[in-house]
Design a protein around this nucleic acid. Sequence first.
DNA 1: ACAACATCTTAGCAAGGGCTAAATTTAGGT
DNA 2: ACCTAAATTTAGCCCTTGCTAAGATGTTGT
Lengths: 148, 148
Amino acid sequence: MCPPDDLNAEARRHAERFQRVREAHQTELAEDYVELIAHLIEETGEARVVDLAGWLGVTNATVNNTIQRLQRDGLVTTKPYRSIFLTDAGRELAEQSRKRHDIVREFLIALGVDSQTADIDAEGIEHHVSSATLKAFAKFVNKARRST
Amino acid sequence: MCPPDDLNAEARRHAERFQRVREAHQTELAEDYVELIAHLIEETGEARVVDLAGWLGVTNATVNNTIQRLQRDGLVTTKPYRSIFLTDAGRELAEQSRKRHDIVREFLIALGVDSQTADIDAEGIEHHVSSATLKAFAKFVNKARRST
DNA sequence: ACAACATCTTAGCAAGGGCTAAATTTAGGT
DNA sequence: ACCTAAATTTAGCCCTTGCTAAGATGTTGT
Ligand SMILES: [Mn+2]
Ligand SMILES: [Mn+2]
Ligand SMILES: [Mn+2]
Ligand SMILES: [Mn+2]
């Protein structure tokens, strides 16, 4: 009789969107860590706890805890009192994250955002950009590049 | 003698960006809650725990916990077994969040992202968009609107 | 009025992600 | 070689954000 609850359907869609955001939040930290670890290894030859702490703005103890979780999840390998290495899965995630991060940052700059703000905002936005949106970002960047 | 550690300066900037993201994560949930509460009050006359739970995809108990924190932080008022009201601060945050959320969603659509993806991605991106970037988004939306 | 049902609350649990302080181990300088 | 400083790890704490299960309170139909 009553219109079969469209309201409920909207609520369900809304709830699904939230679940996506919650999932993204669970993987963010891992993405940022492996991306940074890959960067440090490339630039300096190794990734040490103290360096990660400095680059992330957290304490050594916090890095240590997180690294243990990453190891549990198969993204890094460590030996006691030694520096940190990426597994194949870790390297792959790092590479993906780096590419996505770069596109988001370049996109913001192409849009007219100053590069310092782009750096800041990209660090958060990157984790919530679906592949469809990322494609749209990349397209915009390329178009802007061609037209200059 | 050596170039005064530019490496360290880059690390410091990186760390600051991370601190920003961590701060954003602390306010996200509050923003989404008050935005939804305002919406429910406007549409249905009241915001009840069970409705919030349905719209957010979490349990009643979780909503209850979060609402207590929001009350502690001066964003909502509640009386036992009654529905939820926004304080002035809560209403203001809700309004701000709604506007920003709308701009982000419209921006993604204007960029060519399908509306369903835009809905999903905007829910996460909104919390990491600075006022400078938001301004750039709004400008792009207006330009796209005029040119159609 | 009151039974049944819905809603709200509480209690108790877990994981994530921060911190400080105190070991422990490694690495350097003399 | 050894003493010291730096780096890593551990232990113990806190808050957030989720859950389930059970109790308390409101609401509604008969
Ligand atoms: Mn990144
Ligand atoms: Mn990031
Ligand atoms: Mn929102
Ligand atoms: Mn949101």
